[in-house]
């Protein structure tokens, strides 16, 4: 396959992921609305909001870094996407996955966050600093159990390639890591709560409790970029967990169903819990998922 053709396939994948991300966001919001006895947004609302955001006639800038923040974030999301195999066994939708892609992806997860930190720091508002230090503190503790779980998986499957991990789980539901390595799965799923940032771990972006911070500084086109990235990132993170723990996807339908449920899992918890304060969530991540992750490694190592 020529590199041009490969790029086109990647772009098609990105297009599908982006639209699925937008739709999934809307569907989830509609479901959450039902819990609140509401009708909720129109399913096509996210597509309407994007042109609205991209078309603001003016915008505030705080300098280059401020502008680069969302770009970093987007490249974080797209970066994960680029190295993420989407469909197991499909040569068209395995993107640029390679032998060590899981490590790269773990790195890219932080990449966006750092970009935000730089950008928001440029914003100059004291709240941005508070917000970003909260975000980084929490995200660090979130990454640790996830990394432990991935290490556990690496030991289990003896590889650092997502493609291979996903391939190894084919052939029946009992082959899923979920069943073969429940401890790692548990550690990863709990840290996933922090990655998707739903309650109780969403203090970072809660307007109620931290005033104007990064999620509220960005507007217009910047926010449009962040929202686009959000749509991609939500799906692609779910794809990551799908590939690592839930047997990957043999086709697009499977991918859609699995990512939906993986994402829904965080929402399912998030809706009914309030938020932890930042030090509470840090302590929590350092307690429960961390211990699970260590156990998972020990379990696999022994």
């Amino acid at each position: 396959m020529s590199i041009i053709a490969k790029l086109l396939w990647v772009l098609l994948g990105l297009f599908i992921i982006l639209n699925w991300g937008l739709l999934m966001g809307a569907l989830i919001r509609k479901i959450v609305a039902r819990v609140g006895k509401r009708v909720g947004i129109r399913w096509y609302q996210p597509w309407l909001s994007l042109p609205m955001l991209y078309s603001t006639r003016s915008s505030i800038s705080h300098g280059v870094m401020y502008y680069l923040g969302p770009v970093f974030r987007l490249s974080g999301g797209v970066g994960i996407f680029l190295f993420m195999p989407l469909i197991v066994g499909s040569p068209y939708f395995d993107n640029f996955s390679f032998a060590g892609d899981v490590v790269v992806i773990l790195y890219f997860q932080f990449f966006g966050m750092l970009g935000m930190a730089l950008g928001a720091g440029e914003g100059g508002h004291p709240y941005s600093t508070i917000g970003i230090s909260r975000g980084l503190a929490q995200f660090t503790t979130v990454e640790v159990p996830l990394t432990l779980a991935v290490i556990s998986l690496a030991i289990q499957y003896d590889t650092l390639s997502i493609k291979e991990i996903a391939a190894a789980q084919q052939g029946g539901i009992t082959n899923w890591t979920l069943f073969t390595n429940p401890l790692a799965t548990a550690a990863a799923l709990l840290s996933m709560l922090g990655i998707f940032r739903h309650a109780p771990f969403n203090l970072v972006q809660a307007p109620n409790e931290i005033p104007i911070g990064p999620p509220t500084e960005y507007h217009g086109t910047y926010l449009g970029v962040l929202r686009t990235n959000g749509a991609i990132l939500h799906v692609i993170e779910a794809v990551l967990f799908m590939n690592l723990f839930f047997g990957g996807a043999g086709n697009w339908i499977e991918l859609i169903i699995k990512t939906f449920f993986i994402y829904f899992f965080t929402v399912f918890i998030g809706v009914v819990f309030p938020r932890f304060r930042i030090e509470q969530s840090v302590v929590w991540f350092l307690k429960v998922p961390l211990v699970l992750g260590i156990l998972a490694i020990l379990f696999m190592a022994i």
Binding site: N202, L203, N208, V272
Partner: peptide, 9 residues
């Protein structure tokens, strides 16, 4: 105020 919005609804 602590992020549990569902009861408010």
């Amino acid at each position: 105020t602590t992020g549990l919005g569902i009861g408010v609804q």
